[in-house]
Design a protein around this nucleic acid. Structure first.
Lengths: 211, 211
DNA sequence: ATTGACCCAGAATAAATAGTCGGGTATGAT
DNA sequence: ATCATACCCGACTATTTATTCTGGGTCAAT
């Protein structure tokens, strides 16, 4: 059983989160102590230790303002994670043919928990029959699971590409299909990884869902 | 004429940006000095002063790791601005009826420079005939200028609301029109400010442009 | 009743960090 | 020529900040 966060730990975590939101950088021990409303910074030391052990935060010993909130910490706060996720998101997409131009991050817990979306610029015309053209910007959602006919961001031999995911009950069962007859299907081997689902195309101020 | 950023200043700005991306918090003078490849931290002091005067960064005197990059700094770097913009963006939208749930940020410089988009959750049904319903999430772009029939985010008496912007050549010339007969038109007086244009609705994983 | 998890007080110490002083060089404009 | 600007050097000081120490308290579970 995973260690649960306690009330007081959550207080501190929230203080750290708010401070970073407000100022752009983390608080000092003294500032945390003050906001916690205690008179000893030993309390801060103790609580930080717990948060650290619980995997809610990370920090560099002996370095000022070096605390950062980890994904688990954001989850404990029911807060969306913003900038800290950028690195993680883009790190998974070592694209040559696709240029990473931005990101968008999901938010409210009610609608779609753990939404994780980013934006790519498409290079190439392999999906033109699906309305995705060279130079288009597409909105991609990180996913683990896909269904038949999803348009997916795939990594083939460490090259990022966009194709339609096909799952049929005759051989070859699973393959990637370009929406352009000039290109060939791609069969699933261990060199194929699916990274996300294309939700829509962004162009000239409008957002068009893909089908 | 605005003060231009110099090569060396841009170097430092870039170092700060990268450091924050990597670690989640800003660097110390010493770290900046090292990355700049100089031997005196006076150099860092000088450069930071210039960046400060130029409006590229802000910081708290005598506080460790207190530097933050301002919008102008991001622009100088040709970088999209992420978290730092959240505060600025939301600050302009003191909404009661609309809950701010997130933001989406700027794309590539080539396509639409200075794009500035965020996400709201709609409260109320005054636009239901335009396909915008209670609880929907909408994508809003900050704008200064609007054309006839744009669906806009307006602030009326400091209350945020979404309506259709109407510009006709008979009185009352300019007004806001709800897409729901149960509501009344709103005429333009000095209590109305337009904040942005609604680009589309986000729901269950798809993005539907509004018309 | 005792233990351990959690939390707090008040201080002292050690280390990291920002800021200062008094220069120097090179470049381009007036 | 001299001035201003941008940038740099090296050593030093002042302040902020993290850490350690010594000693508590409560409360729930064993």
């Amino acid at each position: 059983m995973e260690k649960q966060i306690t009330k007081r730990q959550k207080d501190l975590l929230s203080i750290i989160y708010q401070y970073i939101q407000d100022s752009g950088y983390p608080p000092t021990f003294e500032e945390m102590r003050e906001k916690l409303g205690v008179s000893s910074n030993q309390s801060v030391v103790d609580l930080l230790k717990k948060l650290l052990d619980g995997g809610f935060i990370q920090r560099q010993a002996s370095e000022a303002r070096s605390v950062a909130i980890l994904p688990r910490g954001y989850k404990a706060l029911d807060q969306p994670s913003l900038a800290p996720f950028l690195g993680a998101t883009t790190a998974g997409v070592p694209a040559e043919s696709i240029e990473i131009t931005g990101q968008w991050q999901q938010l409210s817990k009610e609608v779609e928990r753990s939404r994780d979306v980013f934006i790519l610029r498409v290079r190439g015309d392999s999906m033109m029959n699906a309305g995705i053209n060279d130079n288009d910007m597409v909105l991609v959602e990180h996913r683990e699971h896909f269904i038949h006919k999803d348009i997916v961001l795939a990594e083939v031999d460490h090259e990022a590409t966009i194709k339609r995911f096909m799952s049929v009950d005759t051989p070859p069962y699973l393959y990637l299909k370009p929406e352009n007859p000039a290109y060939e299907n791609i069969l699933f081997k261990d060199n194929v990884e699916l990274k996300g689902k294309i939700l829509g195309v962004l162009n000239s101020g409008t957002l068009k869902p893909v089908k």
